[in-house]
Amino acid sequence: MAVFLQSLISGILIGGVYALIGIGLTLIFGVMRVINFAHGDILMVGMYLTYIIFTMMGVDPFVSVLITFPLMFLFGGFLQKVFINRILNAVAQNQILLTIGLGLIMSNTVMLIFTSDYKILTTSYSSATLQVGGGVSVSTPLLISFLITAAITAALYWFLLKTDTGQAIRATAQDRDAAQLMGINVKRMSIIAFGLGAALAGTAGALISPTYYIFPQVGGVFTLKAFVITVLGGMGSVVGATLGGVLIGITESMSAVYISSGWKDVVVFVLFLLVLLFKPSGLMGKSRT
């Protein structure tokens, strides 16, 4: 029982961070219909940013989100304006390769600057735990990052539902041409959406850096995970990505115990294929375009 509870709790907590990565990807896909293969690399840039801020200025990684978020937003906006914008109407594989190319540029530039060493960001609470009782424990940094994730997600919902810009983004995601006809500045919305997507990925990077490690090629793992989460929840659905993230967290954690940890990624991919085949719109998606 203790094993079951432990797996469930850590699955949910790690799933919170996955959700943040997935939301970023789903926003980008929703608005631009571009599959961003550089998503994990953007997360990696966020990690290094956190690392610099932590080592140079001594700012706590969780606090540094306040700096990382806007910086990564600008970075995402820049990527959209300079690169992605030019291929919005290109065929899918060209979009994929462009983002792969951008990812390669990011990871290898970082490698030239920081070398390919593994960086560990150690805070006073990196190894701290809370005992819940019944032999179950919770990692303090993971719990904090989960709470921050929840707060950011709530703020994002509010932004998308209640503000004019948020509604314009949703309208663009629903129908780009119609939105344009309605007088929405689609180009601007795309920049904001990509900026937000990058900011969320960067924030996720900041949040996991106290419990994870940092190196230039760290992105790949997270890119694939982000795809699975996004499809699971329904491409373009923010609620779906939130649920998808937590679901993947739990699936990984449970299958590591009850199937085998070597096979846990296979379980995730099989789940992914099943969703694609039997409910292609995802758990929360309405239509598939």
């Binding site: 699955g11 793992v221 954690s253 590591a256 115990v257």
Partner: peptide, 18 residues
């Protein structure tokens, strides 16, 4: 138990070993 390199969460596996 074998694990894929670069996972973020080994807690469930370690709880099982415990």
């Amino acid at each position: 138990v074998s694990y894929p390199k670069g996972s973020a969460d080994y807690r469930s596996t370690l709880a099982q070993i415990k």
